[in-house]
Design a protein around this nucleic acid. Structure first.
Length: 557
RNA sequence: UGGGAUGUCGCCAAGUGGCUAAGGCACCAGGUUUUGAUCCUGGCAUUCGCAGGUUCGAGUCCUGCCAUCCCAGCCA
């Protein structure tokens, strides 16, 4: 991968052309969330694009809160958004702005439009406005208020601002074209009356500007060069340009649309995400299964992995759904390089090593990372009674099974060769214990040139720590849950499996509480810091590739 | 049926008329390995939504058709 944050795409081509033609000498971008919810993967694409572009062009990206609708906005969301952007690895320095910073200027520009006979106050009800807008095949009908005089419009608009009218009784509209094929151009509403506390301006205003009027002007005021947004705003671009063309401002940013990021088996709609939270299907907005940045953070996804993922996926105008495997691969790629290795047995099966002295404890040395010596080594206690994974024993196993079965010898990771002598069953016929013997000469290497196919992990019974482990799987069964009629019906009922008493080698939970570990031969896990009572909890970040399990699955079917 | 957009391998995505259509993920086959992980090697679109046309030459240009997505908030 190149050192660039953003790989070449149609937007960088536009920027390069603008730079070489001399249209701009620097680029300024912006990430403009409305503080009315939590950020999710989809936002990650916009963040990485806008901030990444700014870095690539030695420039700046503004963080601008699009706070023009006090109805759903809160400071709590704004703080969470800032936290998430920082976590993702980006910084806006002192370039934090709010659309509300421009309310005065916006108001002046609105009066300008009135003076230019390009805006008017409309008395129609929302219902009448909707009816008169027409539809795809029917042209709109001019409002009876459309030809009010400049003076009348001005005094009416000032009266709106002064709070002389009730909420919803009047709006300021742009006078464009009620016949336009683009419904956004059929005299769009510019200002509405709404008596609500605003997170920044309190009750200073009772009229609030609409997105289409605010966004372009905010961009222009801040000197944004390239205003990047998602595809659904394509139809708004003519209006974006109309406003800037008709208002006295000497900056005209270019709006460029790209396709949203959709990931298979996930949902990013704010409404639906909220439904998951409200119905308690998940454990809050930061549930490790959520597509929110806070969820991915809690899950243990490294921010670098998300950045790499977004970069891998690219930027285009094609509507797409990226397979979750691409995200998982990006997560594994980072984790493989950065996670210390550790041994943990999730589903324990007792093993007694008959020829190992009772009461003896050896401290064996294990490397913390097989490919990176800088991670060092650690001491792991070994004794007569250990636990291995239930899956690592199979009765009457064939030659392809490299693990334990009667008479077969395997390597215990970082320890000795053991041979399974006997499996002890309970009354129901389940194997509850293995009797094995070990080869004292086999510690640390092949003693006599004997090779074993399998190496399995283990923990010493007397030393292991009990931990709770949570195994997460995709939240939905359907690859495009957003496309089904009732998305709640496609929820994967097995998206969380709790293992209350897994066993972890000692010495791990006492320190480095936020590192992601690889439980060898198993998966990556990160300590859940939202629960502090009781035994330590580990969330599974992502599984490892498992070609054995895959081939087993195939041979079954 | 109005307006706006998009169609290149299972999923993304390069390609801007001229060598045999990049790359990643997935998948398949081997090799290394004290993780059936990692790593390494090889395979994986005679063809670019379809049909015509222009051209010595077209995924790239033209015409027509088809498919999909977005738009009728005083949301963003």
């Amino acid at each position: 991968m190149s050192e660039k944050n953003v790989t070449e795409n149609f937007i960088t081509q536009i920027i390069n052309a603008d730079l070489s033609s001399g249209k701009y000498s620097k680029v300024v971008t912006r990430f403009p969330p409305e503080p009315n919810g939590y950020l999710h993967v989809g936002h990650a694409k916009s963040i990485c694009l806008n901030f990444g572009l700014a870095q690539d062009y030695q420039s700046v990206c503004h963080l601008r809160f699009d706070d023009t609708n006090p109805e759903k906005e809160s400071n709590e969301y704004a703080e969470a958004i800032k936290n998430d952007v920082r976590w993702l690895g980006f910084d806006w320095n002192d370039k934090e702005f709010h659309a509300s910073d421009y309310f005065d200027q916006l108001y002046q520009f609105a009066e300008q439009l009135i003076e230019k006979k390009l805006a008017y106050v409309d008395d129609q009800s929302p219902d009448q406005i909707r009816k008169n807008r027409g539809d795809f095949t029917t042209p709109g009908v001019d409002s009876p208020c459309r030809n009010r005089s400049v003076e009348e419009n001005m005094s009416l608009f000032r009266a709106m601002k002064a709070g002389k009218f009730a909420d919803g009784t009047k709006v300021l509209r742009a006078k464009i074209d009620m016949q336009s094929g683009n419904l956004n151009m059929r005299d769009p509403v510019l200002y509405r009356i709404r008596r609500l506390q605003h997170i920044k301006t309190g009750d200073a205003w009772c009229i609030y500007p609409m997105y289409d009027f605010t966004h372009c002007i905010s961009d222009a005021i801040e000197g944004i060069t390239h205003s990047l947004c998602t595809l659904e705003f394509e139809d708004h671009r003519p209006l974006y340009d109309w406003v800037l063309d008709n208002v006295d401002i000497d900056c005209h940013p270019q709006q460029i649309e790209f396709s949203r990021l959709n990931v298979s088996y996930t949902i990013t709609s704010k409404r639906k995400l909220n439904q998951l939270v409200e119905s308690k299907v998940v454990d809050g907005w930061n549930d490790p299964r959520m597509s929110t940045l806070s969820g991915m953070r809690r899950r243990g996804y490294p921010p670098e992995a998300i950045r790499n993922f977004v970069k891998d996926v690219g930027v285009s105008k094609k509507e797409s759904v990226i397979s979750m495997t691409v995200l998982e691969d990006a997560v594994r790629d980072v984790l493989n390089k950065t996670s210390p290795r550790v041994m943990s047995v999730l589903r324990p099966l007792k093993v007694v090593i008959e020829n190992y002295p009772e009461g003896k404890v050896e401290m064996l040395t294990g490397s913390n990372h097989p490919q990176d010596e800088s991670y060092g080594t650690r001491k792991i206690p070994f004794s007569r009674v250990i636990y291995v994974e239930q899956d690592d024993y199979k009765e009457n196993a064939n030659r392809k099974f490299f693990r334990l079965t009667e008479g077969r010898e395997v390597r215990l990771r970082h320890a000795y060769y053991i041979t399974c002598q006997e499996a002890i069953k309970n009354e129901e016929g389940q194997v509850i214990e293995l009797r094995c013997t070990y080869d004292p000469e086999s510690r640390g290497g092949t003693a006599d040139g004997r090779k074993v196919k399998g190496t399995i992990h283990w923990v010493s019974a007397a030393h292991a720590e009990e931990v709770e482990v949570r195994l997460y799987d995709r939240l939905f069964n359907h690859p495009k849950p957003a496309s089904v009629d009732h998305f709640m019906d496609s929820i994967n009922q097995n998206s969380l499996e709790v293992i209350p008493n897994a066993l972890l080698e000692p010495g791990i939970t006492a320190h480095n509480e936020d590192v992601v570990y690889q439980f060898e031969r198993n998966a990556y896990f990160k300590r859940d810091r939202t629960y502090e009572q009781g035994k330590p909890i580990f969330n599974r970040v992502v599984t490892m590739r498992d070609s054995w399990a895959k081939s087993e699955l195939q041979s079954e079917s």
